[in-house]
Simulated scan of single mutants.
Amino acid sequence: MLAVLPLLLLLPALGVFAVPAIRSAATVTNLTPAQISSFAPYTQFARAAYCNPLIVQGWQCGDACDAVPGFTATLTGGDGDTVQYYYVGYWSTQNTVVVAHQGTDPTQLVADLTDVDILMANPDPTLFPGLSSSIEVHQGFADEHAKTATTILAEVKRLLSQYGASSVTLVGHSLGGALAELDTLYMKLNLPSSVSIHAFTYGTPRVGNDAWAAYFDSQITDFKRINNEKDIVPIVPGRFLGFLHPAGEIHIVSADDVVACPGEDDATDAQCTIKTVPNIAEGDLLNHLGPYEGIYIGTVFCT
């Protein structure tokens, strides 16, 4: 990874790659303590996704599960290796079906996502019907998502019917956040329009190109991607490689200073991630683990 850093930092300055345009003129807003604390249950859902499915199935995964009472996990899967852990269940408190995906080793993730040979591809049309051919996503993320997509969708449909739920909530951290982002649009395209879609992701890398971000924003109205301080994962893969985040950034500047950033990938405001972490050499990978509202996320925090 270190060998490619000088090249990655130099390429944008040389104009080798075009940086996608940003479509927003809004301003940063500070979140209230109540708004910040409202994210905590979703953070715990993301944390629980790192736990072995055997203990998630009975919602006995320790502090993360204890923090969100009223949730019943009905489907768990993955092996934490070839297929990331995931779970689906019903949260009676909010009358919503929840889908959560496990993340991965952030060191390995950053190494993979700073490769200048990263491949993009059109999303599978059988999973994402009706998309323009201009929309492209990270091939590896798309392949990982496809492994569980239809199984998860079937369980979501079953729970919506069984409980008369009115919404689906997608969560994930790191690679799990990328899978949750893909799942968010996947659910929107494959569920009735009467079902509302909500998503909360943490430390998520960029998933797709400019056309992906624009279409995602046109379809999804409640998406929050939460970044912690100087976490470097949200700035990879680079915008100069054609990747762009959709709107919805929430940046934890410090413990009690949290802001909502405008646009799809705010590169203007000093309080937002790109200005805080202009390149990976100036970031802090430990911030990837948290704390998010005082909560750490990762395999070692599944207790």
Rank of each mutant, 00 (worst) to 15 (best):
A48K: 00
Q60I: 10
N30G: 12
A142T: 10
L189C: 07
P33V: 06
A199V: 04
T82Q: 13
T201L: 03
C272Q: 02
Y42S: 08
D257G: 08
E144R: 12
D269Y: 12
V98I: 15
E144A: 13
G283H: 02
D256S: 14
V97Y: 04
L75G: 02
W212I: 01
L7R: 15
F141Y: 15
I36T: 01
T268W: 09
C51P: 01
M1T: 12
D143C: 09
K275G: 03
V28E: 00
S133I: 14
T82W: 11
T72Y: 09
F128T: 08
G177E: 03
A26S: 15
P192V: 05
G77V: 06
E229Q: 14
Q162A: 15
G70K: 04
V156M: 06
D81R: 13
G78M: 06
A165E: 04
D266E: 04
V110H: 07
H145T: 07
A247D: 08
L244K: 07
F216L: 02
L127I: 09
K188N: 14
G58T: 13
G80P: 03
Y86T: 08
K188T: 12
E136T: 11
L191K: 00
G263L: 00
R23E: 15
F39E: 04
P125V: 09
V16H: 12
V98Y: 05
V137E: 06
I197V: 11
Y186R: 01
D112A: 11
A21R: 12
P205K: 01
V16R: 14
A146W: 05
G70H: 08
P33A: 07
G177N: 05
G203K: 13
Q35I: 04
A149Q: 07
T76I: 09
A214Q: 15
Y50P: 00
N30H: 15
A67D: 05
I197M: 01
G140R: 13
N279P: 08
G130L: 05
S174T: 07
L113K: 00
V300K: 10
P291G: 06
K230V: 10
V156K: 02
D210R: 11
A281Y: 10
H198T: 14
G140L: 07
L160K: 01
G294E: 05
T303K: 11
D115Y: 08
S24G: 07
L113F: 11
T43F: 12
H101M: 10
A142F: 10
T126N: 10
D63Y: 12
V110M: 09
P125T: 10
S161G: 13
L5E: 14
D117Y: 13
H198L: 12
V259K: 06
T104L: 01
T74H: 09
L289E: 13
S24R: 07
V16K: 10
L170M: 12
L153S: 03
V207F: 06
V300M: 11
D269M: 11
A21E: 15
N228G: 04
P234G: 00
G58P: 05
N279T: 02
Y86H: 12
I152D: 00
Q94C: 09
Y85Q: 02
T150L: 13
V233T: 03
I280P: 01
V99C: 03
M1W: 13
Y50I: 04
T27E: 14
I55F: 11
Y296R: 14
H251V: 10
F216V: 00
A154K: 13
P246D: 06
S133C: 09
P262S: 00
V277G: 02
